[in-house]
Simulated scan of single mutants.
Amino acid sequence: MQRRHDIDALRALAFALVIVYHVGMYYVEGWGWHLKSPHAAAWVQAPMRALNLWRMDLVFLVSGIALALMWRGGSRWALLRQRSGRLLLPLAFGMAVVVPWQPYAQGVANGLVEPGFGAFLLRYYTGGPWPAGAFDGAHVGVTWNHLWYLPYLWLYTVLFVLALPVLESAAGRRLRAAFTGLRGARLLLPALPLMAYSLLLWPHFPPTHDLVGDAWLHAVYGTLFLYGWFIGLHAGLWAELRHRRWPASVLALGLLALYLPLRGAAPEGIAALGLRLLADLYLWTAILAVLGWAHHALNHPWRWLGWANESVYPWYLLHQTLIIAAAVALAPLALGPVLEPLALLLATVGGCWILTAGVRRSNVLRPLFGLKRRAPLPRPSPATPADPAASSA
């Protein structure tokens, strides 16, 4: 099967967008995050909201595509074991080693944790207790912060592996065929379940990222994951997405232009629910546009793809801790609202680049960052007297 370079590139770019978004979270005024810059500004809300409405939805859809490509009709339990190892081991390592600096920095900034990272770790590894509001997740004692994506993806993977007999049944194949047969305006139909979730679940289950009480996000992300499974490598649907990339882009931008000023008016009640439905339609049209443009522009064997495919997972694990560490280090320099964000982004990218280079070279670290171990290089066989090369040396 020919490799789809656009899907590889889209996965890497989707996670790069997550990194840029988290840098922006340090600067957006009025939104809660672990730390806040003194240069936070309200105008940053508009571009951040334009991304926030679909960035993680795209990540879960691409994850569904990836699972569909991994499934070759073999043992579903082998598939589950493989995915569990590459999701749960990095989650455990990340929570134990990569993430703790984040709650420490937040707790110190909030004045609820005493400076001293070593003493913090001793207390953190035993579950606290912590003062209320010391850091996100203090009521639990520990946190996974930005790594919430991993347990969510693992949960959806488990559910889909269990559901494979249904998905591969005649009824499941008919449902998939109905999805991949969507053309023209009917491509908007997959937005309807998302809108139904907003009507039924969104008012009652605000996002928590705690895995347990996140019914609305589970419905949305699980459905996008299913859509990715349906899409897979279906040539006809991808051709249609490419063909409709311009109409999808225009519609998405039009919906965004309508959404942002209405959102700025802070609607309540029925108006807020109506705005949420508008956001769902924008979400789906934005994803249609992204998929269409990716297939049009990115389906090439880019030289950077091999490096990106191995680097995206470590970058994801490392980036938010590096953002927060760099933010703390840069704050005393008072670089201002232009130089500081640039320095923060460069420090994050540079840190990810350097640390990932070390991770990729280590067979001990690679599994901890979601990478397969490298096969050892074959040793040259010792020369024997019968070896012509040896006798002529």
Rank of each mutant, 00 (worst) to 15 (best):
R123F: 06
G73N: 05
L226E: 12
V28N: 00
A272P: 11
R49G: 06
G128K: 07
N145D: 13
L318Y: 02
L255A: 03
R72A: 15
A325M: 12
W304V: 09
W54E: 01
P337E: 07
S391Y: 10
P378K: 02
L17H: 04
V44N: 03
R183D: 00
P203I: 11
L255M: 08
S381P: 08
L344E: 01
R242G: 10
S392E: 13
A40N: 07
R374K: 06
W71F: 09
P367E: 01
Y156S: 00
W77T: 06
L164G: 06
C352V: 10
L226R: 01
E29N: 11
S249E: 10
D136S: 05
L211Y: 14
P100Q: 12
V328T: 00
P301H: 13
A105L: 15
K36I: 15
W43F: 08
Q45R: 11
P100T: 13
Y149C: 09
L192E: 10
P38I: 11
W229M: 08
R366Y: 13
L88N: 11
L189K: 08
Y27T: 08
L17N: 02
W304G: 06
Y124F: 14
L253F: 13
G351V: 11
L368I: 06
A185H: 14
V364L: 10
V166W: 15
S311L: 04
P131S: 10
G181V: 10
P193H: 13
L344G: 02
L317P: 00
A170I: 01
F225K: 04
L200N: 00
L233G: 02
L89Q: 01
A46F: 07
L237I: 11
L305A: 09
A46K: 01
E340R: 14
L255T: 03
Q320K: 03
D8I: 06
I323H: 05
A308H: 03
Y282I: 05
V98W: 11
L339H: 15
P332H: 08
V99H: 04
A347G: 05
L164F: 10
L371Q: 11
P103H: 02
L10K: 03
L87N: 09
P151R: 02
A279P: 05
